[in-house]
Amino acid sequence: MADRTGDNGKPPAEELPLLQVKDLKTYFFTRRGIVKAVDGVSLTVRRGEIRGVVGESGCGKSMTAMSILQLVDKPGRIVSGEVWFKGENLLARSRREMTAIRGKQIAVIFQEPKSSLNPVLKVSTQLLEVLKVHQDVGRLPRTEEAVKMLKEVGIPDPERRIHNYPHELSGGMAQRVMIAMGMACAPDLLIADEPTTALDVTIQAQVLDLIRTLRNERGMAVMLITHAMGVVAEMADVVTVMYAGTAVEEAPTLNLFDEPLHPYTRGLIASIPVMGQRKERLEVIPGRVPNLIDMPPGCRFAPRCRARVEHGLEKCTVEEPPMIEARPGHLVRCWLYEGDQR
C-alpha cells in the first residue's frame, strides 16, 4: 500500500482527506458471543467526493457509519481504530464534543425516512431543532428559515408543509425533509445510509438527483451507503466494497466496474440483472455470509471463493490478506494479487 501517512500518524496536510477511518473495529458483546460487526475497516472520504460503500446486509456498512458518529447502541462498542475528521481523531473527543459535531459538521440521513421523523412533532419544529442546538444561544430560529430549508430541497408549497406532521408526508417528501435537516448547518460530510432503499423507483431517482445536485452546489462530501450496485454506479466517484465486517476492495467507480478484482465483487456484479444486458443465467455466489461471531480464519470470503479453488491457493484459509494496491488507485484484499503489488 502506498505510504500516504506521515510520521506522526497524521496524513500530510496537502492531501488531507476530510474523513479517514483507520482499522475501525466495532464489536457487539452478546450472550452468544462477540459479534464482530465492523472488524478492521479503513476508508477515506475526500472533500467534495461521493464515496460509495456497498455491501450486503450484515457486512457492517451501516455500523461503520454509526461508529463514525459514535452512535453505536449497547451492547455494541467501538473497540479500536481511529476516525480522523478534518485532522482530528473523533474517537478521542468527549461525548459533549461529539454532540456538537453531529448534525453540524457531519449529517446523516437514513433508510426509513418516515419513521426517522418524530411522529408527534411538526416538520418545522424538527427542522429548526437542528439550528437551535447548533447555533449561538439566545438566538431563536424563525419559521421563515424552515421554509427556506424546505425550498432548497425542492418541496413544493413549503409554507404549508412546515406545519405538517410526518404522517402527512409521502416517503419521498419525508426523505427531502431529512435531507433539509441534514443540510441546515452546511455540513462538510453527509452520510446517506441506504437513502432510497425504502422509496419507489421514480422517487428514488428524485432523491438521488437531489443529493447529487446539493453535492455539486455546496461541495460537501457524501458517504453513500447502499446495497444496490446500480445506485453506486450512478452516484459514486469512488467505491468501497465491504464483506463480513471489512473492506475488500476500493477503487474509482469506473475502474471497479470495468475490472472488478475481488472474487466477491466480481460475483456480486455478475449476480445482478442489468437492464439492457440480458444474460441467460445469473451468476450465483455459492454458500452464505459467514457468521460474524465465528469468522473463518484467513480470508473471510475463502469458503465461498471459486477463484481460490481454481488457482489452488492455500494461503487464503490460513492468513487474512492485506489491502493490496493491485492497480494504481485500486486496492483489493485478496491473495490473488500478491504479485501485482506495486
Binding site: 452512535l71 456538537a100 459535531i101 453531529r102 442546538v133
Partner: peptide, 27 residues
C-alpha cells in the same frame, strides 16, 4: 428510545437529556 426518530435526534446533535425528554417521553 430504540426507534429510528430517536436515532435521528441523536444524529442531529441533540443533547441526550433533550433526546429522552423531547423525543422519547412524549411518545
Amino acid at each position: 428510545l430504540g426507534l429510528n426518530y430517536v436515532r435521528t435526534a441523536r444524529a442531529k446533535g441533540v443533547h441526550e437529556l433533550s433526546v429522552v425528554v423531547r423525543h422519547g417521553l412524549r411518545n
